[in-house]
């Protein structure tokens, strides 16, 4: 009766705005699919048990742990990674703020951190530092001590709010 189940699964999705069709192993998670099959090495695999946030990507408009979603589940999904968000200039201000504030050191957490931060920023308003810290509380950074990241996100929130008023 197990012929209902497949050990390889066909999926069709869009990744960074481009259509992708693939046959993926049943147990493969999204982040391995993106990195190994599509060469999108921006998001990283680090803990692979859903804790560190280095694999955070955007799926159907919200931030998602790439290691806790199977590629097989992505059929029909719209997936964005740091590469696509860069190419479309969707987060240029945030990236610039990270560089200006040195809100990254080794950079391994940064692609996931950016996706998480952008989710908060795109909700609008000017979040408090505590709200920024809380929203990023699932993204581990061993280098910075977080303060520079909070500064960078806060500065972008304020700048975007300012633009909205003008």
């Amino acid at each position: 009766m197990t012929e209902m189940f497949r050990d390889k699964v066909d999926v069709a999705l869009t990744v960074n705005g481009e259509p992708v069709e693939a046959r993926v192993p049943a147990g493969q998670h999204m982040i391995d699919f993106l990195r190994l099959d599509l060469g999108l090495t921006g998001a990283h695999a680090s803990c692979e048990h859903g804790v560190c946030g280095a694999c955070t990507i955007r799926v159907d408009g919200v931030s998602v742990r790439g290691c806790l979603m199977l590629a097989a589940q992505a059929d029909g999904a719209e997936v964005w990674t740091v590469e696509g968000l860069t190419d479309t200039a969707a987060i240029t201000d945030l990236q610039d703020a990270f560089v200006a504030r040195n809100a990254l050191q080794c950079g391994f957490c940064t692609p996931g951190m950016l996706v998480a931060a952008e989710e908060l920023l795109s909700a609008g308003g000017t979040p408090s530092r505590a709200e920024i810290r809380e929203h990023l509380s699932g993204n581990y950074c061993r280098c910075t001590g977080y303060e520079a990241i909070v500064d960078a996100v806060e500065s972008v929130a304020k700048a975007r709010a300012g633009k909205g008023d003008a």
């Binding site: 999108l40 090495t41 990283h44 740091v82 590469e83 990236q95 990254l104 080794c106 950079g107």
Partner: peptide
């Protein structure tokens, strides 16, 4: 080297 890292263009 910070710009490449925020763009996910690092090479680990």
């Amino acid at each position: 080297n910070a710009t490449k890292l925020v763009q996910g263009r690092g090479r680990y």
